[in-house]
Design a protein around this nucleic acid. Structure first.
Lengths: 108, 108
DNA sequence: ATTATATGTAACCATTTGGTTTTATTTTGT
DNA sequence: ACAAAATAAAACCAAATGGTTACATATAAT
């Protein structure tokens, strides 16, 4: 594992999203996290490393344990990107939409 | 290309995010999009396919051309996921804090 | 000191990803 | 009818991803 380590990529993985969900409410040790998943400890360890590398998780070493906590602030980057599209959500869609589209979830 | 085709994964790629940025304001043909990038047409074609598959882009075939438009509505899924973390952004939660109180930091 | 615990790291592996070039296929213009 | 244009689809490729098992290391418990 190496390269493009950004928040968008970090949250692309469902396991990592789940981990975020766990850690935002509880501070857990690595093994504490592992318990919630089917995958092996090293797999989780890697996910945590990725999350840490892009600032989504903070790790506090305490003795032989590592306490992990979510740092959701970093999600703001994604939020901000998406935010620019929000203005279009409620906007009238053009004819093509109706034509092809199934869901058109306009709530207005 | 195959599997896990969801919005999170779709926007993980920076080129695809750029494409979204283009298409939200302009409807462009495939070649029209290609012009904005360095990569080959087939590469863009694949990106578009992915974006379409997960509902972020709509394609309207017109003769031999395919007009692509962004469907930012689908980003709501990501928005909603992130939204649950928004609560924590303004919160003062450094490691120790969370560590010590370790008890759902309810804001209600 | 020795052992058990918590974790990291390495080596490996299959699949996916993002790209390429080459080869169709369909539509338009002449 | 024929050539050009717009695009898809196939075949291929290197690198990244997500996982595994095996091994290493530091701390805690006895």
């Amino acid at each position: 594992m190496k390269a493009r380590r950004d928040v968008f990529q970090a949250i692309a993985d469902p396991t990592r999203r789940e981990i975020m969900g766990l850690l935002v409410h509880n501070t857990l040790t690595l093994n504490g996290i592992v318990e919630h998943f089917e995958v092996s400890r090293p797999a989780i360890s890697k996910h945590i490393k990725i999350l840490e590398e892009c600032g989504l998780v903070m790790i506090e070493q305490q003795g032989r344990e590592r306490y992990c906590t979510a740092k959701p602030q970093k999600l703001k980057e994604v939020f901000d990107w998406i935010d620019q599209y929000k203005v279009f959500w409620n906007q009238k869609l053009d004819a093509l939409d109706d034509f092809l589209m199934n869901d058109t979830p306009t709530d207005s």
